[in-house]
Design a protein around this nucleic acid. Structure first.
Lengths: 332, 332
DNA sequence: TTGAAAGCGCTAACAC
DNA sequence: GTGTTAGCGCTTTCAA
């Protein structure tokens, strides 16, 4: 910047003014400085600017897994929404490991980052409440108790109820669930299970605990394994509600391999509506959270915190839809 | 840091020494400083550190699309490999748009970033050669001529030849290709097409231009559309080589909808071996680039540039495998 | 409208 | 083994 100033015959302050589009600069000076800028190929140093001003234009997005289609799609929307705000998104992959999530909470790379959007998998209400780092944070996913942190999510219980109601309407009576997580602290599984139970009750269907399968993680292989176990039951289900689409795709694979017809013998429903689910065989009925809105709301909440500062934490529930495809066509 | 120094009764230099694990610090001092550090909840300021030392510990990964499974999987490996080096990865999504890729080339956020791993879609040899930004850059994907930039990829031509040879061995004679890109400047499509042609020639099969389908982009929908066109041909193919797995999955969808049997009537092969391809119906035969090695090599090359500096540009070709699944079981 | 100088938090050189 | 000091590139008072 000093070089530029010298070349243009002005002070660094004037260069700074030009670079930052300060209004009170005479046109002549501006032009002169600008050409010096171009000639020298000047590029502002973000570190210095951030050190001085406290804003870096960087926000972090902390997700469990990048190659989890739901998160990849969400990340895409968030990157787009952030770009519209002039922010760059830095991605942290936590793998759902407690120590990685703790790093996010404690503020890795503090002061470098203006805000964080965090989708916790194992971090609970206690840790959240104990957070000391003051970087604005927006929480994604299931709601957990928290103080100053904003939150964006969907109503998991209602969504799961919707699924069960749909299956019951189609005449299914033995509806299994795949995705319970006994050993995880994440709330998502618990909420969807709760919705599942409520759905059964609403439909007047009995609850059979043997139809609830746990899933160590939510990958395709877990769904395939759980479905195998369900088929081995003396009295197998006539429908399966998987707590995400990956599980459902794994389940479909098992059913196909065993020659079980979908939806005639067993109907299958997922959750997330990843793109893959409209190409599966058969196409997968699923819950579609409004990812674009989740992303834009998260960014908007963060922006509000950065501009305005305080205020009570806000909790936004975005809409979801039930997308009906061939995997739950009428069974009759 | 000054506060910490005061509390511990030492100078800032000593605090810096402790923070940076400098060896020559007496244990007593170290302990004293450490407790002051903890008490005050000290966190180093990355901006300042980067401003001073010129290294931020941040590298950028510039990819076309995050929700493209191949890139998502690759990103995951790269984030992991980078983490092992103590680097954080910042992700740029270019959408394959020329102006976004140009930004990457010009060095958005210069000086903040220690290096860039860039997977160009539309940027060609000319732009690459004209690059002025000096941030170390590793190129991913097809090789294009370049000067000082390292490159990691696989042999696309050989891989495509392998696919065609495999199909020919199984007795297929009318082998179509989906994924030509007449309007794009990217080289990938061209190289795979070249391998396809070479493969036909090696197998002594005639080349029929009507069997080569263009794809505007490499999404599932493009593959589905291209397959529809192929089926409308008077003399349709008995095998299809799709230039990526997404196209192949779209093609499978079309075939399924039309009641065409795979592989009995038409065999299908993809490219990339994304996880989804082992769960498709039927499982997809495909080329598996060694993504983990591509990632670790990229990071290693970047690390070498950052440590060592100059030297001629290196070009690493990683291995690939043909993964045979049900979509190309013997047609007889 | 423009310039001079201070200082953001940190580390490297050098002195003690 | 530890302290002093200068300076990374920038923006922001404050003066001119």
């Amino acid at each position: 910047m000093l070089e530029v100033a010298t070349l243009a015959g002005v002070s660094v302050k004037t260069v700074s003014n030009v670079v930052n589009h300060y209004v009170h600069v005479s046109t002549a000076t501006r032009v002169r400085v600008q050409s010096a800028l171009d000639e020298l190929g000047y590029r502002p140093n973000l570190s210095a600017r951030s050190l001085r001003g406290g804003q870096s234009g960087l926000i972090a997005l902390a997700l469990p897994e990048l190659d989890f289609p739901y998160f990849a799609e969400l990340a895409r929307y968030i990157v787009q929404a952030a770009e519209a705000h002039g922010w760059t998104v830095l991605i942290d992959q936590t793998d759902g490991r407690a120590e990685r999530e703790k790093l996010v909470m404690d503020g890795i790379r503090d002061q470098l980052i203006d805000g964080v959007i965090f989708s916790p998998l194992v971090t609970g209400a206690r840790e959240l409440a104990a957070r000391r780092d003051t970087t604005p944070m927006v929480l994604l996913g299931e709601r957990v108790h928290h103080g100053t942190m904003d939150h964006v999510g969907i109503d998991n219980v209602a969504a799961a109820q919707t699924v069960v109601a749909h299956l019951a309407t189609l005449g299914h009576t033995r509806i299994a669930a795949i995705g319970e997580q006994r050993h995880r602290r994440g709330e998502t599984a618990r909420l969807r299970l709760q919705g599942y139970l409520a759905g059964l009750e609403n439909a007047g269907l009995p609850f059979d605990p043997t139809l609830v399968m746990a899933a160590a993680s939510y990958h395709r292989a877990d769904g395939a394994a759980a479905m195998t176990e369900l088929l081995a039951l003396g009295d197998p289900p006539d429908a399966v509600f998987c707590f995400n689409d990956m599980l459902a795709i794994g389940a479909l694979r098992t059913l196909r391999d065993r020659g079980v017809r979908v939806p005639e013998d067993v109907a299958v429903v997922g959750f997330d509506d990843i793109e893959e689910s409209s190409y599966s065989a058969p196409g997968l009925t699923t819950i579609r959270p409004d990812k674009a809105r989740i992303a834009s709301t998260s960014i908007a909440l963060l922006a509000a915190r950065l501009d305005g500062g305080g205020g009570p934490s806000r909790d936004v529930t975005e809409r979801f839809d039930l997308v009906v495809r061939r995997s739950t066509a009428s069974p009759s």
